[in-house]
């Protein structure tokens, strides 16, 4: 990447660009990153009959969604939680902070550079999924595939931003790892249970996951996690439905005569009009908020704190 960019005069690029380039290189030369890309392919390849019924050849683009939501969140968090606090403990942060950059520049460079470092290998894996899928199940809309790739890049940026924010405000790598594991448990593994519990305590209504109530509050809470927001956006692009479930579950949920544990707007609001607040584009808004808000808060502490 530096070859093509080397042609550009540095003065036309932001001042933090060289640091971002260094961060990208660090991520790209790590074995863990490429292992993660292998996992995206291996776990993403999930052909199902119901998936085929729902999406046809676009199922191959759906593989990307499954591959990216299986191990990528944990992988990116684990490979990134130390990016600031680790350097702070070792002392290499003194070089980054000694550069003519503001501390905010340093956080931006970390986030942008590391995101680029993850986007490249994950894109290689997803393009492979698409190519192999196209041979096996036929051609799909390249535009939809591109849309899924963009949404995936945004999700990767969100994960890097969260890890960077945590890393910037913690004082030891142990605490930072605890914080990202906490995020993973709450917002990836347990979010639907937590959202339902929050809904029940707010409204006093119990929720049957096989037949959830047609309530915008419940569905709105469910898609507040980046993980479910990403699935909502990609399901929308794929034309799979309006839900934060993976497309394979959604395919079963939406098939006539089938019942499965999961939350889909179509089945819950069957026959009723869907409130505008549950439009799938809300998923993009949620992702953008997670991209900006944690970093913004971290920046506040990071700009003022003692870092040596």
């Amino acid at each position: 990447m530096s070859r093509s960019l080397a042609a550009l005069p540095l003065s036309s690029l932001p001042r933090w660009f060289p640091l971002a380039r260094k961060e990208a290189r660090t991520v790209l030369t790590s074995k863990g990153t490429w292992l993660l890309a292998v996992f995206v392919f291996v776990f993403g390849w999930r052909p199902t009959y119901s998936g085929w019924e729902l999406l046809g050849p676009s199922m191959s683009a759906g593989f990307v969604q499954v591959g990216v939501t299986t191990l990528v969140p944990l992988g990116v968090l684990v490979l990134s939680y130390g990016s600031v606090v680790g350097e702070r403990t070792s002392g290499s942060l003194k070089f980054a902070l000694g550069l003519p950059l503001t501390r905010t520049d340093v956080l931006v460079a970390k986030t942008v550079g590391r995101t680029a470092g993850f986007v490249l290998p994950v894109t290689v894996a997803t393009v492979l999924l698409g190519v192999v899928g196209a041979f096996r199940y036929g051609l799909f809309s390249p535009l939809a595939f591109l849309g899924v790739l963009l949404a995936t890049s945004l999700y990767l940026a969100v994960l890097v931003a969260i890890a960077t924010a945590v890393s910037a405000v913690t004082t030891s790598t142990v605490r930072a790892s605890g914080a990202v594991v906490g995020y993973f448990l709450a917002f990836v593994l347990l979010w639907s249970q937590l959202a339902v519990a929050a809904y029940s305590s707010l409204t006093g209504r119990a929720v049957n996951p096989y037949d959830p109530p047609a309530d915008a509050l419940l569905f709105g809470l469910l898609r507040l996690s980046p993980d479910r927001a990403y699935r909502t956006v990609t399901n929308w692009i794929l034309g799979a439905g309006n839900a934060g479930e993976s497309f394979t579950i959604l395919a079963i949920k939406l098939a006539p005569g089938q019942s499965v544990n999961g939350y889909a707007v179509e089945t819950a609001f069957a026959g009723a009009s869907v409130p505008l607040s549950l439009h799938e584009v809300g998923g993009v808004v949620v992702l953008l908020a997670w991209l900006v808000v944690p970093l913004w808060l971290a920046r506040y502490r990071f700009e003022r704190g003692d870092l040596a």
């Binding site: 350097e87 002392g91 290499s92 070089f95 003519p100």
Partner: peptide
Amino acid sequence: HDRVGILPDRYDTY
């Protein structure tokens, strides 16, 4: 920092 050269103490290289 544009005009200062810094050799820190207790640093670590990349």
